[in-house]
């Protein structure tokens, strides 16, 4: 099952990347499409065992819905982050107060944690440095508001954790 999924997925990506239509007439190029299908089957056969068996339990439609909610929220925070950095770069005194703080996450799924770390890196003033196995994240904060673990967790992690838990767990 995983092999079939990976085959279909890699064929779709290949198709979008190559876009095998003739630019003038718009006909499908049969030869390269067949080559693409063969390569996709090989990729699926050899690498299908590597993807994790289960990406978490729960209703797929609900999770996709929360993913769709997550994308605009994430984009909004990314734009805020950029305006924040812009302000700090242009300001002549550079109002920064950097430091590395420690926060705790309750997510257990590895994919969820990776997503959380990536989200933290692209949002205002924070960047993940390391994740430990027992759920602590070390975060470089450009403007430290609190050194306490719980306080920092409320500032940094909690805004994403709820939605990410609904997606991945």
């Amino acid at each position: 099952m995983r092999k079939i999924t990976l085959t279909v997925f890699s064929f779709i990506v290949w198709f979008l990347l190559v876009w095998p239509f003739d630019p003038l007439t718009g006909d499908l190029d049969v030869q390269s499409t067949v080559a693409g299908i063969i390569v996709a089957i090989f990729v699926g056969l050899f690498l299908g065992d590597r993807i994790p068996r289960k990406l978490g339990a729960g209703n797929v439609f609900k999770r996709v819905f929360w993913l769709i909610v997550y994308v605009p929220m994430f984009s909004w925070y990314v734009i805020l982050a950029n305006l924040d950095v812009l302000y700090r770069v242009i300001h002549p005194d550079m109002p920064i107060r950097p430091g590395i703080v420690k926060v705790k996450t309750t997510l257990t799924n590895p994919a969820g944690r990776a997503m959380l770390a990536n989200s933290i890196t692209l949002t205002p003033g924070t960047m993940t440095v390391d994740i430990t196995d027992d759920g602590y994240l070390y975060i470089h904060w450009i403007n430290v508001k609190s050194e306490d673990i719980e306080e920092a967790t409320r500032h940094i992690v909690s805004k994403f954790e709820g939605v990410l838990r609904r997606i991945f767990e």
Binding site: V89, H140, I142
Partner: peptide
């Protein structure tokens, strides 16, 4: 160019 150490530079540059 402006920020004082590696971590601040990495933050600003990566995001923007």
């Amino acid at each position: 160019v402006r920020f004082p150490d590696v971590y601040n530079r990495l933050q600003a540059a990566t995001k923007c």
